[in-house]
Every structure is written in structure tokens, then in C-alpha cells.
Design a protein around this nucleic acid. Structure first.
Length: 490
RNA sequence: GAGGCUGUAGCUCAGUCGGCAGAGCAACGGACUUUUAAUCCGUAGGUCUUGGGUUCGAGUCCCAACAGCCUCACCA
């Protein structure tokens, strides 16, 4: 077994009086920063036919050994940290017999620290000429294949730590995710929004239409649900006078898994008193622009075979307009819509016309919206939390932002009429199943509205999908560090 | 939940018509003080995902289970 030889070296290190598990290692420089010191190397002409003499800075680095070439009493090794990779040269004569014995215990995957001079080898490779070697941690497991790394998607997800070390661009992708989230948070904060933490255990799983995960509180002996949305508690805070408020948090939906769905995902919801859905469009553009700037992306972004241009302002098109454009049937032609639905095997009998129309929209229109495009003015009847347009009460002041056929954001002018809200919670649209409806009666929420919620705009952004788009990732599992997998059977 | 594809050494992958289980990397032993996907010589490494079945004989064919990926369903 591979483990045996590694354990033998572990024992050998202990014999040599070296702790194979290392300890505090102060003052090391990031490899990326060390590489940037290349220009400080001073060079004087060497003797006839010899390379120039170099004098480089003294550096201290730490990293994982990812390549190793043993050439007799010389070892070339490449170590990698999260900022880059650099070659080491360890010579028996240069480090002395004792350190050489330690160096001989180095396996691929081990973590070591070095002190040495930064200069070039004869072949011109930037290299740390090691003077002192520090063992920082032994790896008992062999690393993945050195050319291709881990390619099996299951192993990449289960052993994300290896994917991060050996996968091309994986660390950068997840660091980009962090930068995107920070940029969004900073942008909101600098616009006067405050971040709060709402409850994740809800007694009523409201604010969206999805099946919740259920759990139970022992002491109170009550059923509880993991939240499926952030909405209703944030709106309670509007009632409480927190005029600009947001939460960036995990929500849980007990639904299928796909390249665009993970049972837990990250949602941003923002509420702005005295705003409306149009203010939310401006805010959406602001946040996405800030995210792009944070990861240094300019110009169109490649996503699969699509080119996405995030220059602002994004297109704004009405729901009905897009419906007619992509289906060839006018949105208000309910007979025509019904015929279309039947052709698509969408059930028609006993169902609300807007529910049917929306299913047709999802089927025929959404995929084609490469965007970014704000789809505005949804049928009011499918929007129970949204204020109706003053000009046309059949239309809700709502937009969804579509990019590459994916819904990225959803925003409303928030409904703040408690009586209408209560009525809409009560009205189950004909033909809709309970779990398909977001009209779930929440008396406490109604009571909050009865105390006066200021008119407001609200916005939700699916952070994982946004990160997918901005990092060119085709699967949500590529932007979630530990996506849900079935546990391994032992 | 349905269908398709995949599962072989630690990793990446071959394995033809059903006839001795293969390679590269990694590992181990040896040579090498300027290599860089180091090179050269040698060695070792397998419950072919699991369980059944067909067959003289199964990694290969059939059935089932398990896991992953994809498509669909589900999912504003």
C-alpha cells in the first residue's frame, strides 16, 4: 500500500527529531508575492562561459508539494499555495546531511516551509534555493494524478479539498464567489442598507412556493420548517421602521437537484421603504456591476456558448410583449393561450387562465431570454405579495431578471394593504396545489401589515446562479463548496 | 419519480468476438548537483461498485441494487 511507505517516512521523521505535523510558522510570504520579487534580483556578469552571478532576496514560503524531481543529491520540488506555485531547489551540500535526511522524507502532497534565496536556475526558472527546510504536515494519502488532477465529478465534490488544491481555477472560482458576495454587501451597505439576521426556523414556510424541510422542536413540541425565503420577516422589519434592510442568507427547498438547483442555496433579499420595483431595477444593476468590478471582469462574459453583455441599463420588456413575441399568440387572447397550452400538454381544465398562461410562458419564453432582461408587469393573479399597478389592476408591479434563460432576480413593489394581502392569502388560485402556492396564510404577518408597512420595493437575487453566470460555471455545484450528495455507504 | 450514460490499481484511463487483468501517473529499489509533466534500469500494486443469473468459461452478456453525471419531471 501507498500508505505504508508514507507512514515509514512519518516514523523516519520522528526518529530524526522532526515533528511531521509542524506548528506555527511565522513570517512566510505568499508565493504570488514572492514571485513578484523577481525584479529585485541583482545580476552581475559571470565568468567566461558561465551564467551570470545573481543575488536575490531572502524569502520564506510555505505550501503543498505538487511536483518533485529527484536528481541524485538535488531535489527540485514545486510547492503551491493559494496564490501561486514556485520551484524549490534543495541540494544535499547546501542544506547539510541532517536536513537532507528530512528532505528525503518529502512526498507529493506534503506541506513544507522553506527559507532560502530567490534567484534563477541555469535554465532561467525562478526558484527558491533552499537553505532551511521546515516540515509542516505529512500527507498520508497520495495525491491525484499529476497531469489531469481529479476529473471524476463525484470525487471532486466529495473531496472538495483535493479539487481546490489540484483543480485548475477552482480556488479562484470560489474566491471570486466570496468577492462577489462581499461586493454586493459593501454596495448595499454604502447605499444605506443594513444587514440583519432573520430566523431560519419558521413555523410557517412562507414567502415563496416550495416544499420545505420539516423539523421539530422538542421543548416546545412543535413542528418547524427550514425557511424557503427571507421575505416575510424582512417586511416585518419595514413595519418596524428599518427603512433599508437586507439579508444574505441560506434558504432551503426540499425539491429536486439539478445543474441549477441545490436543496440549500444563498439568497439575497433587499427591501427599501418608499421605493418601488423600478428602484429595484436600478439597485439590481448597481449590485451586478459592483460584483463584476470586484472580480475584474469587463466586457461580455462567456457562459457556455452564449455571450452575455452586462452593460447597463439592462433591457426592460413587458411580460405580455415577450409572450406575444415568442409564442405568436397575444397574451390577452385566452382562447389562443389555451390552445397553445393544450398543444404543450399543459393541463387547462379548471385552472386559472393566468396560471395556464404562466406555464406557457415558462415553457416557451424563459429559455429564450438570453438577457440580461427585466421582464416586467406580471399577471397580478400569480403574484400574491405584489402591489397592483395603478393603471391596470390586472398587472402586478413585478419584474424578474432573466439571464441565459435563468431567473436571477425577482422584485416587487411590495403589497402593503393588509386586507388585500389577507384576501390573497385566502384565495387559492383554481387548480393550484397547496405546495405550489405561495399564498400561505400567515396571521402574524397580516397583523404586522395592519400596523402599517411603508410602501416599498423589494428584491431577491439568487446568489449562486449569479455567481454561476459571472464565473462561467455551467453547474450550481461548481459554485457551492459542498453541494448535497448522498452519503457514502461504508 | 422516469429515461439515458458511466463505475476496472491511490489517480487518469484502455480492455476487440465471452477465453491468462493492461498502460500512464503516483509508490518501492537503483543511477544522476540544474531539473521542470525530468530521464534511465528494475519491482510491486486488482473483491473489475455490490448481489444474483446465463455459460465449460463473465471485466465483457442478462437481471437487480448502490453511487455519480445528463435529460425530463419537480422547482415563480
Amino acid at each position: 500500500m501507498h500508505e505504508e511507505s508514507r507512514r515509514a517516512k512519518l516514523a523516519r521523521l520522528e526518529e530524526l527529531g522532526v515533528d511531521p505535523w509542524g506548528g506555527r510558522f511565522d513570517g512566510h510570504q505568499a508565493i504570488g508575492a514572492i514571485r513578484a520579487l523577481e525584479e529585485t534580483i541583482e545580476s552581475s556578469p559571470g565568468e567566461e562561459g558561465k551564467p551570470p552571478n545573481e543575488q536575490g532576496p531572502q524569502v520564506r514560503a510555505a505550501g503543498r508539494v505538487v511536483l518533485q524531481r529527484k536528481a541524485g543529491k538535488l531535489i527540485f520540488a514545486d510547492i503551491r499555495d493559494w496564490t501561486g506555485q514556485i520551484q524549490l531547489l534543495i541540494g544535499r551540500k547546501q542544506v547539510g546531511d541532517d536536513s537532507w535526511a528530512v528532505a528525503e522524507c518529502v512526498d507529493l502532497g506534503d506541506i513544507i516551509g522553506v527559507d532560502g534565496e530567490l534567484k534563477h536556475t541555469r535554465t532561467g526558472e525562478l526558484t527558491i534555493f533552499v537553505e532551511k527546510l521546515h516540515y509542516l504536515t505529512k500527507s498520508i494519502e497520495p495525491p491525484p494524478e499529476k497531469h489531469k488532477g481529479l476529473t471524476n465529478p463525484e470525487l471532486r465534490q466529495r473531496m472538495r479539498y483535493l479539487d481546490l488544491v489540484y483543480g485548475d481555477g477552482v480556488v479562484d472560482r470560489f474566491l471570486d464567489r466570496t468577492k462577489i458576495v462581499s461586493a454586493i454587501r459593501n454596495s448595499l451597505t454604502s447605499s444605506g442598507f443594513v444587514e440583519i439576521e432573520g430566523p431560519t426556523l419558521h413555523s410557517i414556510a412562507g414567502g415563496a412556493a416550495a416544499r420545505p424541510f420539516t423539523t421539530h422542536h422538542n421543548a416546545l413540541d412543535i413542528p418547524l420548517f427550514m425557511r424557503i425565503a427571507l421575505e416575510l420577516h424582512l417586511k416585518r422589519l419595514l413595519v418596524g421602521g428599518i427603512e433599508r434592510v437586507f439579508e444574505l442568507g441560506r434558504v432551503y427547498r426540499n425539491e429536486g437537484i439539478s445543474p441549477r438547483h441545490n436543496p440549500e442555496f444563498t439568497m439575497l433579499e433587499v427591501y427599501q421603504a418608499y421605493g418601488d420595483y423600478r428602484s429595484m431595477m436600478d439597485l439590481t444593476e448597481q449590485l451586478i456591476s459592483a460584483a463584476l468590478a470586484a472580480i475584474g471582469r469587463e466586457g461580455p462574459i462567456e457562459w457556455g456558448d452564449k455571450q452575455i453583455d452586462f452593460s447597463t441599463p439592462f433591457a426592460r420588456r413587458t411580460y405580455d410583449e415577450l409572450f406575444a413575441e415568442h409564442t405568436g399568440v397575444e397574451a390577452n387572447d385566452s382562447a389562443g393561450v389555451a390552445r397553445l397550452a393544450e398543444k404543450l400538454d399543459i393541463e387547462v381544465a379548471g385552472r386559472h387562465p393566468d396560471v395556464i398562461k404562466n406555464e406557457v410562458f415558462e415553457e416557451l419564453v424563459e429559455d429564450k431570454l438570453d438577457g440580461p432582461v427585466f421582464v416586467i408587469d406580471y399577471p397580478a393573479s400569480i403574484c400574491p405579495l405584489t402591489k397592483r399597478s395603478r393603471q391596470n389592476s390586472d398587472v402586478a408591479e413585478r419584474f424578474e431578471l432573466f439571464v441565459a434563460g435563468m431567473e436571477i432576480a425577482n422584485a416587487y413593489t411590495e403589497l402593503n394593504d393588509p386586507d388585500l394581502q389577507e384576501e390573497l392569502f385566502r384565495t387559492q388560485l383554481a387548480g393550484q396545489r397547496d405546495e405550489d402556492s405561495m399564498a400561505k396564510m400567515d396571521h402574524d404577518f397580516i397583523r404586522a401589515l395592519r400596523n402599517g408597512m411603508p410602501p416599498a420595493g423589494g428584491l431577491g437575487i439568487g446568489i449562486d446562479r449569479l455567481v454561476m453566470l459571472l464565473t462561467g460555471s455551467q453547474s450550481i455545484r461548481d459554485v457551492i463548496l459542498f453541494p448535497l450528495l448522498r452519503p457514502e455507504s461504508s
